[in-house]
Every structure is written in C-alpha cells, then in structure tokens.
Design a protein around this nucleic acid. Sequence first.
RNA 1: GGGGACGUAGCUCAGUUGGGAGAGCGCCUCGUUUGCACCGAGGAGGUCAGGGGUUCGAGUCCCCUUGUCUCCA
Length: 873
Amino acid sequence: MDTAEIRSTYLAHFANRGHRVVPSAPLIPSDDPTILFTVAGMVQFKDALTGVETLSYSRATSCQRCVRAGGKHNDLENVGYTARHHTFFEMLGNFSFGDYFKEEAIEWAWEYVNDVIGLEKDRLWFTVHPSDDEARKLWIDKIGIDPARVIDHEDNFWTMGDTGPCGPCTEIFFDQGPSIAGGPPGSKDEDGDRFLEIWNLVFPQFDRQPDGELEPLAKPGVDTGLGLERLAAVTQGVDSGYGTDVFAPIFVTLDDIVNRIQRVNALASPSCRVIADHVRAASFLISDGILPDREGRGYVLRRIIRRALRHGHKLGIDEPFFHKLVQPLVETMGDAYPELVTSQERTTKALLDEEVKFGETMQRGLNLLEDALKNLSGKTVPGEIVFKLYDTYGFPVDLTADIAREQGLMIDQSGFDDLMREQQDRARAAGQFQSTATTELVIDGEVDFVGYEQLGGESQIVQVFAVQDGQLVETAVLQDEQDGAIVLERTAFYGEAGGQVGDIGTMISDDAQFNVVNVTRSNDQFVHYGQVQKGSFVPSQTVRYEVNAIHRQDVARNHSATHLLHAALKRTLGSHVQQRGSLVEAPRLRFDFSHDQPVTDHERLAIETSVNEQILANAEVETNVLPYDDAIASGAVALFGEKYADEVRVLNIGDGFSVELCGGTHVGNLGEIGLFKIVSESGIAAGVRRVEAITGRKAYERFRDNESLLSELSDRIGTSDDQLPKRIEQLVTERKQLQKQLEDALSMKLRDRGADLVAGAQDIGELKLVASIIDGTAETMMASFDDVRSRLADYVVVLAVVDGGKYQLVCGVSNSLTKLVKANDVIAQLKTHVPIRGGGKPSMARAGGTAAPADLENGLTSLAEWLETKLSE
RNA sequence: GGGGACGUAGCUCAGUUGGGAGAGCGCCUCGUUUGCACCGAGGAGGUCAGGGGUUCGAGUCCCCUUGUCUCCA
C-alpha cells in the first residue's frame, strides 16, 4: 500500500465513524508559545482536549505534518543513524473531545491495522500503563490478543506539563522480524529497531493538581498518533521510512548527484539519509513561512539545512546541491500538500541562498582556523579556539576536528564541551521569564453589537463595576466621579480586538453621564471603562449611548489603511510577508510583519504609492459574512494565531486588492482615508519589521508642517523650493572648495613661518631646538610642525597653539637623537612647569591643557637648559 | 530571551597600553608602451555605521541606537 493510500484509508476509516476530517495545521503552532513547531496531531486540538475551547464537533481525524527538531521534542541528532527517527514526519490521528473513550479507540484502531491494513496479529505487540487495567482488558478480552503480548510499561503515561491534563496511553508495536536487532518493549534490547512503535493511543483522563494529585477529568478524551512513515515502511516491507515510496524520487536524484563523485548506495548511507530527511523538514518549514534565520524557529531551520550541507560536504559534494532535491520532493508530496507546490520556487531559492551563505561562513572559518593552527604550540587545539570558531563564526566542530586530524592534531573536546555547557546554562537561566498571571475579569452573556451600522442608541445596563485598589469589583451602584466600568445589553462601542483600540464616547441617562474612555472584551461581553461625570448608574437602568464619531472615523481610516498596507507589503516584498502584530488607533497605525531585511527606500515608496493609488480609486469597502471554509477557499487572508468562528466577516477592500477576515470597523469608501504616509520603518526582532504610518487628518498636518518647513528653508537660502536640493549641493561643494583654498593659503603662509621658526632655532650642542607658541589650530600646527622638521636634520621641536582656551602641544625628536632625548620625556619635563597632560612615542608626543600663557612660555624657555644638562649626562 | 564578533576609500581589508587615517585593486590626468593582472609619475575619493560619554587628545576605551555574521534557549 503506498503512502497516499494509507493517508486516505485512515481518514476515511475515521470519517465513517463520525469524525470530522480536519486538514493539517501549519508547522508553526498558531497560539502556543510553549513549543517551536507542531510536534503531533493533537497540537491544533490542545484547547479542545483540555476543555478550554468547544468546537462544533467532538470527533476529529487528521493527517498532521510534524517537525521535531528543537526544544523539548528534538530528534535532530538521531536522524540518519536510526531507521525510525525523522525531523519531519506525518502523523495520522483520531481525537475525541469528551466523546468516545478507550473502548471505541482501541476497537477502531484494531480494525484499522487489522482489517484495513492487514497487519498480522502475531506480529503485533502492545504496551499499556501498569495501572490501566481497562486498556489491558480491552486488548485481551475484547480484541483477543495473547496476554503475553500485552506488556506493562511504566513510560506509558502522557503528560502535557507539570500540571494539567494527563493520562495513560497504550502503544501498538510491529515486529519487523529477527533480521533486525532489538527486543520487544520492556526488554533490555528495546532500543533496537526490530520492534517498531507505530501507534500511540493517549487517554487524557486526569487533571494533575499543583500538589501532584490526579483528579479525574469530567470529560476524558482520546488523542492518538500513528506514524505514517513507519506504517508505510511496514506495509511496503522495507526496514525504514527511507525505503518507502515518498522518499524514492529524492533518493533517485541524490543517487545521481553522489555517484558522480563516488560509488555509494545512497539509500544505505547515513549522510544521504540525513540529507533526504532534512530536505523534507526544510521545505515544509519554508512553505509554512519560515526562513533560515539567526534566532528562534528560523535558526532551527538553518541548523537543519546546514546539517544537511555538512553531510553533503562529507560525501564530497562541493557545489550547491540541496535545493535540487525540492523538485523530487514536490513530485511525491505536492498532491497531499498543495502549499508545497505554490511555494516550490521560493523554497528552492531560499535553500540555494542558504547554501551560498554557508559556503561563505565555511570559507571564513577555514581562514580563521588556518591562522589559529599556525600559531599553535603543542598537539592539541584548545577548547577555547574550537568553541570560538563554532560560537562566534559558526564553523562546525566536527570539521575543525577533521582538519586538525589532517595536520596530526587533536581537539580538546572536553574543554569545548565545558564552554558549551556554560553557554547553555547562561541562556537557560536567562530564558526563564516569569509568567504574568493577571486575574482577568470574566463576564458571562453576549452583547448585542450594533456598531457596524450605528453609532448611538439605547440599552439597559447589565452590570456595573467600580475601581477599587486598581481592580474592578462588581457593585450595586456606580457613583458620581467614580472610575468604573459598565456592561450593556446592546452597544455600538467597538471593543478592543484585532489590534484596533476600543471606542470612546458617552452614556447618558436623565441626570447622569458616563464618559467612556476605553472598551474591552470579556468572552462575548463588552466592558465600557470610564468615569461618571455626574449622577450615578445602576443595573437595569436604561441609558442612551453615543460613540465619538470623529475618533471612530480616525480609527476606521487607519484600520482600512492597515489592510491596504498589508496587501501592498505582500505584493511588493513577497508572499513571505505575514502579519506579526498590528495596532490601530486614532492618531496612527503600526504594523509588524515578517521580513528578513530592512525595507529599502525604493520599496517603501512603492508600497506607499500602491496604497495611495487604492485610496484615490475610492472603491467601496465590501463586507460579507461567510462560512469560514468558504472564505478561505475564496482566498481571504486569515492570520496565524487567530481563532475564528464558523461564520466570519470578510472585508474586500479595493475590489480584491485586499481580502481579509476582520471584525473591525472600516471606512465606507477608500477615499475617506484621504492620504496614507509611512513615517517610519524599523526592525523589532529577528526577521520582524515594523512600519508606522498616518492617514487622514494626521497625514494632512504632516504635509502642511513639512510644507512650511520647506518654504522656511528656501526663504533662508534664497531660492525656490524646487531649486533647493541643487542650491544646497552647490553650497556644500562651495564650502568644501573654500575650505581647501583656506588650507592651501594657510599652508603657504605657514611655509614662511616654518622658515622663520627654523631661523629662530637655538643651537644646543649639535642639535637645533625649536620651542614656540604659534597662531592657528591643532591642524595648522601640524603643517608647520612637518615643515620645520623637513628643514632640520638633528632636532627637538616643540610647537604649541591656543585653541578655545586650551593648549595643544606637539613635540618631535629626530630619530638620530631619540636614544638621548625622547619626545615623551620632553613632555614630562614640561609637566613640571605647566599643568598639562599627554604623552606619546620617543619620536613624537602630544599634550594639552588649560595653563595660563605665561606658564607655558616659561616652560618652553626652560627646555634649553634642561636639554643641555640632559645631553651632558 | 541570553552570549560572542563585526561595520574604516567604489571593492577587499590593515590600523599593535589612546598620539598626524593607511595598503592593494578600481577611478582620473600625464608620460611610456601597445598581446596575456603592462609599466612609471601625479591626483581625486573618508561624517572611521549613527549618537552620547571619558580624555589635553578617541578609528582605538565606556554607554545607547542601527545594521550584518554567529552560537545557545
């Protein structure tokens, strides 16, 4: 049975048993910061399994793409050396959210492996948790398994964390026969590949308390995971996933590449297996929006790619090859994963780029290593050097060892390991951020939101809250001048969501007024925060509410503009652009998105222009409410990390320019935005850029201010606006020329001064002493200094200028004399007369200070005498 | 989230307890030569990533910002 058939028969098997077939979630978990990647089928159902969330169905089945290559679930190092580990694999699963339990789960699993796949009973083994009599009984009595093949195993207990849902599990193993080493589960040889775990059925039935107590869960569930590659290997009679049909075209290509260099059976070569595995992980990660990067998920991806490249290098491949494997991968998996096909070009390019980049890193590392080895004494390369090459320059440790070995050297592995451990400890210690457990207000009921159509109306108050000690507390009456919050039956106020801030406005009733300053959501209720202006408010009271229309309109402009910006970014920079954060408020908008380099001026202009063209075209903003699946099928953009209801609101802005799911408030026609202007672009995290922009009134104000700034500038310079750049250019050039002329003139003048200074030199024995305070700056002093020196053979020259109340001194001694007199000694001598500081080399020294002129004069005069005694020593 | 390294002329880079901003290639002018990186002489080109601090003096030391490379979580 080929892989595609296993996939489809599995999903059909469970669909026939009332399961909703749910498509594979992306590899990036939408809203789970605790894991790097989707590591199992249950990841997308976590909230449903724990009862936090209720779905419209209680049974689901899926074929989930998974990556285990970083964080807690990390199989990276094992890949290639065992038959069963993959960084990328597909997990078939069926799930019950408080619906069926052990009996059905075990029965249906058995029907699948036995009836559908046709695995022989006497090749299957089972494990259960020692405490789980129920599961053991089901296997033996209901299914009729030989009790000797149902093994108790302490490990068969699944937990999600230290607390929370957990429960026993039962596993199905397949015996691949005596030709492969290994023993049945529970035996001492269980780590071998002979007995292959193919399916794990987990039964979350307890809720572990902080004190360790296991409390029975009200609605126990089922969560199973069947390894697709393993089952395919078993049914196809091969000893590992690498031998199955999904891998075949990859190995054909790989065989072709490698066998140009050496005779290798690619399928049996660990290096080739690593490469074949990693191209799947890398390609799927890239198609799910990740790019090789320095941090986080992107870093894990980079490690996967570079590990593959290193194995390619080991095989003797010395040119980019990895990207060539994308094509054969798409051939086998493109049907099941259409996103692979659409991203094929992008994936190939990303891999090729990374290959080139890694080549540069390797070359740089080789140069550094060569230098380090040159200066090495002894036979061992110190751990610090190995570590530095790896840590700072990314040069693989095993490669360092290879090169060292070629030169008869060893590397200090344990020294390296120590440093590595320090690095890990440091990072781990710093990574433990405290959980900010804020007590959130939870309010039941659902508000009737009429804010899309109206800005005002009447409603009854449901609840009122007062602020006490910084917290909201429900109260019977909200008094005059009190800060608090009001919950209404019906409202037009938009509650903060999706990056859009809450509305502001007022509530009025008879003699009372409440100013709303913010509105947030609690479940399906809206909480209107604010202050009582006069009177008081109580539940059941009827109020007239009024949203501030100007604020609403400013926000709407920015929100619609945000959608246009998002679409323009995608069109201009590429489809890898994903929204990473968004803030929409009245004065401005802020949009964070994935992009791995700064946006160039040119791109920025193109984006801005594109948005403004849409505004000028003034299309009507269309809103439709559709079933979620229909909306996605029609190409609407949904956001990672957002949960959507079955019915969603789809905004079509600019006749299809931007089609996005959104619950926010928008303008009616794009022209209302007026003008869109990007005011800043910056990086906020690795691979994440931030754009801030303004629209409407703010954009106009900015335009107006810039206009007046411009006319002020042109007034000052005395030219028209459009001539300003040219005129400034002229002025700058002119200034440069004048400066140069001035310098030339000065140096002409100083040449004469040089002659004068030499003429005034004192003879001290064989040498000439020049010691003078001259006019000019530190800069011109150096010119004179040069000039004087060029006119003399054996000399001591000291020149000084006064510049801004400070002295600058320079002292030079001809090389012929530095054995007798050192320039820094001259400075030291001067220090005894004048409070200056400085120093330098024997041939030249510099100093400065804030002495009175007379002191300096005295100091310089004293030098002649000092020199004479010095020379006579 | 925590470390390490780097940013100097158009390009590749050097710059040693802090003391006058450099080399090679490229470019321009002149000369010589005219077949394989021609040669010789002269010249232009720099906010030493940006900002702040310490200092008489900062490319060099300290802090911040920004960008690039890299390891770890």
